[in-house]
């Protein structure tokens, strides 16, 4: 995981990326692509309807074990549903929720950060105060409160995940904007009559893309973990729909007797966060971005 030194500060083309990667990074990339493909193609590759119950064949172990049910590769769950199909759909939902949440966070944080950086004055004060506020309350608690108050639905969940990481984007964007707007060429652009928006679009945005991509990747795995944790605690999406976290949470009661209910979804969660973490770190090294804690 040692960083390759002296690389240009812009995200390069994929080819050079791959060449410079070490084995772990390549593996992470492959895992990541596989997971995304599995999620996207869930409808096509899942052998069964993930909601199809069969009360007479509940809790059957995976293929190869005693009492297994032919055709159900990873066994069946507490309502006789196919664990493999549920895991695939769970993966789809987990990744979808995390993606939606991360995008929402990027949108909110990016916009506020941009405003704060360009406008300064009260816009900056308010944004930074909100950032401080967000940091003061550990997010899991805030999420508990929001889910308790507004119930558990997909929309609420996406909002919760979205506001989970916005303050990071806001801080990064604001800092980058300030740094960039003080550079001579921006001063020149401004002097030559470019408006705020013009400056923002032509000069600032291209320059903050790479730190944002890196932050997006890093926060993505945090969001996956947050969603899984909330679902594990029973505060996630509603049954019969399940994310990976829900499957682990509900499956936990059967842990000693039917560990396959937990192993498949738990392994998928770990694979997601692991590969995303490594990819994020790799991107960061490549982009040579210093993401500071403060």
């Amino acid at each position: 995981m040692t960083a390759t030194t002296h690389i240009p500060s812009r995200v390069g083309v994929f080819g050079s990326f791959w060449r410079d990667a070490n084995a772990v990074q390549k593996a992470a990339a492959l895992i990541g692509v596989t997971l995304v493909l599995m999620a996207v193609l869930a409808q096509a590759i899942a052998p069964y309807d993930p909601l199809q119950q069969s009360l007479i064949s509940r809790l059957r172990p995976p293929q190869g074990f005693e009492r297994h049910k032919p055709g159900f590769l990873l066994g069946t769950d507490e309502l006789g549903r196919d664990v493999l199909s549920r895991s695939l759909f769970g993966l789809q939902l987990t990744l979808g929720l995390a993606l939606a949440g991360a995008c929402l966070g990027l949108l909110i944080g990016g916009t506020l950060g941009l405003l704060a950086g360009l406008r300064r004055g009260w816009a900056e004060d308010v944004t930074m105060a909100a950032v401080d506020l967000q940091i003061a309350v550990p997010f899991t608690l805030l999420a508990l409160l929001i889910l308790a108050l507004f119930g558990t639905s997909l929309t609420v969940m996406v909002c919760v995940l979205g506001i989970a990481g916005w303050e990071q984007y806001a801080r990064i964007v604001r800092a980058e904007v300030r740094k960039i707007t003080e550079l001579p060429f921006i001063e020149a652009a401004r002097a030559s009559g470019g408006g705020q928006r013009y400056v923002a679009l032509t000069h600032v945005l291209p320059n903050i893309v790479s730190p944002l991509v890196v932050q997006f990747t890093l926060s993505f795995s945090n969001i996956v973990i947050l969603e899984s944790t909330l679902s594990f605690l029973g505060l996630g999406v509603q049954p019969p729909t399940a994310t990976l976290g829900t499957m682990v949470g509900y499956g936990r009661d059967y842990m000693p007797t039917a560990p396959w209910l937990v192993i498949a979804p738990a392994a998928l969660i770990v694979l997601i966060t692991f590969s995303v973490q490594i990819l994020g770190d790799w991107l960061r090294d490549r982009a040579d971005v210093r993401l500071r804690v403060r």
């Binding site: 899984s228 682990v248 936990r252 000693p256 738990a266 692991f274």
Partner: peptide, 22 residues
């Protein structure tokens, strides 16, 4: 060491706890 650190970061604590209990 860093690979270990990544693993630690990637495994949610409820997963660690669940399997440790088992």
């Amino acid at each position: 060491v860093m690979a270990l650190a990544f693993t630690g970061y990637a495994v949610p604590n409820f997963v660690i706890a669940t399997f440790m209990v088992l």
